[in-house]
Design a protein around this nucleic acid. Structure first.
Lengths: 352, 352
DNA sequence: TGTTAGCACTCGACCTCTTTGAGTGCTAAA
DNA sequence: TTTAGCACTCAAAGAGGTCGAGTGCTAACA
């Protein structure tokens, strides 16, 4: 892979991403002046094709990058200055985060929407796992003789409730004791750490010292059960699916249907977003067939994690056609993810 | 509009809904035996076209129903027996509602999904307005010296929270008094009725008798503010947009994009669903251009309200192409809405 | 007067054929 | 090793032709 081949591949990809049509040798010679004639470029392109970096949609057409070509571009060819956001974009992002909602749930939604509108692709995000959030307050409030309201406040500022049915014999005094014990044992733990084992240890403790009913324990189990499953929370946010319809790649309804069906099964998206941060530090780009699920081979995905206290708690990403301006998209995703990280960090401080 | 014309229109619509292609005079003569020749039917169809009930997509094609034709069909031609659900469908619906989730939010989502999967169209629903739900419990819990947790439980079983910041001077005693007054004045009122006027009347009362700070009032205002706006709650549920892609009417990506954009702006959908129950008792069918927003003229919508304690609290409906089997869809929508009504009634009883 | 048969006519769908032009690969010369 | 020149390929777009479903009209019939 000599220098000139690199230049040609780079030029070809830039042009194709821009225009969306197969690029011929003449075009490259004219637009990007490499100091050689189209014929030379043709020879080089022939080599590049043999190496698998580009291909011809049909015999008498120009070349388009293959997945492998994009991969090489992303790994070796992209230049730092391509990644810069324009003045206006920079402005738009920081404006948004200066004025955005304080509430977490809304922040997530709106960040996602911003990302999708600025890239014109589909943005997706997994929210921090609930089980990572730390229990900051725990309250038991009596509603009436046999109903109790359990309140948990976590460090992300969320308030969780559950109505518990209790045996009639629970006096106010015992209730207060119970609350105190629970507070002592559970506060400061992440919901994940409030595992069954902690709960059951607590059970022994309560049974011996406080002489409280086993039933209370079952209730606690029940209370935490939802958050272990955390079905509703783990559903990824997806914004701007319609943007994809604007792309010429998706002008065929069947393709669209296939792709959207995949997106609708949240699991797939979740896996894609979730796997990324564990495997590798920072931003990950999936190109074409690297997206395992069927029906997405015409797509690429750029994802990056965001952090709270230095720990990866979720990811945010963009799904678009393989023919996407990778540097721009990567820059945007990273910019927004870092803003989210900031906001989350700030928010978490405030709540403490 | 003589009897034979009606028969021909009826036959034409049934056939077109079934097959999806323009219907010719020969087809009608063969399939539905009206005892007359194609020529006669041609003459009648010519009249029907002049009257605006049917039209020709192009000169040498068969006829298809116009919006007006569907309208006439829905208003005068549909026969009760067309509306019957099959054994299997009936079974599916009742099975679903026997095993469905107890929680409201899930019930709504799942009902919507059921409706969309059984019709193969898009189902949509507006949830009961929060401001209609009645305040059943009200609690103030102190978190620390300057934070208060306000808890409201409404008769739909929902728990609402808000953290309030209070002046440091609020003693436990005053807090209890405050809670008592608020309980006395607010319980049993719908959130809508807890209007600014009630709040401000309460303000006077508190200021005079309890000598509590104006600040507390502001907090209460703030507390209720969310529920008056109730942004998040009023967002309509939409399920099965992808189903529409299966319809031949939506094989053109531009049409799809236009339609989906309309659906994405919740307001439009909300209005459609919301207007229905006020205007008229029971099920409403919008056909083609009767759906005011641009980009939906190829669609029809069937909506019907559901009730709690005899009052309309929301609606559920189906959006599909104008070429839809109206009787079936109407029957399904009504069936499911009545099941939802049942469930809601039952649920409301339990919560009390 | 209403109904029917017959027939000419229309027009989209589909097929084939041709033209056009962008782009290549190859060869021979610089 | 690079370049110019040229023959070749192939999709896209357009033109022409056939087919068939379906109509409208007219004249005959009950």
């Amino acid at each position: 892979m000599d220098e000139r081949k690199k230049q040609i591949l780079h030029a070809l990809i830039r042009d194709y991403v821009d225009v969306g049509e197969p690029v011929g040798s003449r075009t490259i010679a004219k637009k990007y002046d490499l100091g050689v004639s189209p014929a030379t470029i043709r020879n080089e392109m022939s080599d590049l094709e043999e190496m698998g970096f580009i291909r011809q949609p049909h015999a008498s057409a120009g070349r388009i990058p293959s997945d492998k070509g994009y991969r090489y571009y992303v790994d070796h060819l992209m230049e730092p200055e391509e990644k810069l956001l324009s003045e206006a974009e920079q402005q738009k992002v920081s404006d948004f985060f200066n004025n955005c909602a304080a509430e977490m749930e809304q922040l997530f939604q709106q960040s996602c929407r911003l990302l999708s509108s600025m890239t014109n692709y589909t943005a997706m995000m997994i929210k921090p796992r609930l089980s990572d959030s730390v229990l900051e307050r725990f309250k038991l409030v009596r509603l009436n003789h046999n109903q109790l309201l359990a309140i948990m406040i976590t460090n992300d500022g969320k308030i969780h409730n559950k109505i518990l049915h209790v045996a009639a014999g629970l006096t106010d005094g015992k209730l207060a004791e119970l609350e105190a014990v629970l507070q002592q044992r559970l506060l400061g733990l992440s919901l994940a750490k409030v595992t069954d084992s902690v709960v059951s240890e607590l059970a022994r403790h309560l049974l011996e010292q406080q002489n409280l009913l086993r039933q209370t324990l079952d209730l606690l189990q029940e209370l935490l059960f939802d958050y272990k499953n955390e079905e509703h929370n783990s559903k990824p946010l997806i914004q701007g699916m319609l943007n994809l319809l604007k792309q010429p790649e998706f002008h065929n309804v069947d393709t669209v249907r296939e792709l959207f069906s995949v997106l609708e099964t949240d699991d797939v998206v979740k896996e894609l977003l979730a796997v990324a941060p564990d495997k590798q530090r920072g931003t990950v780009v999936y190109i074409g067939d690297e997206l395992s699920p069927q029906g997405m081979s015409a797509c690429s995905m750029v994802t990056t994690p965001y952090y709270v206290n230095g720990e990866k708690v979720g990811s945010i990403g963009v799904l678009g056609p393989t023919r996407m301006p990778y540097p721009k998209v990567i820059a945007l995703v990273e910019q927004i993810s870092s803003e989210v990280t900031n906001k989350m960090g700030g928010q978490a401080e405030n709540a403490k």
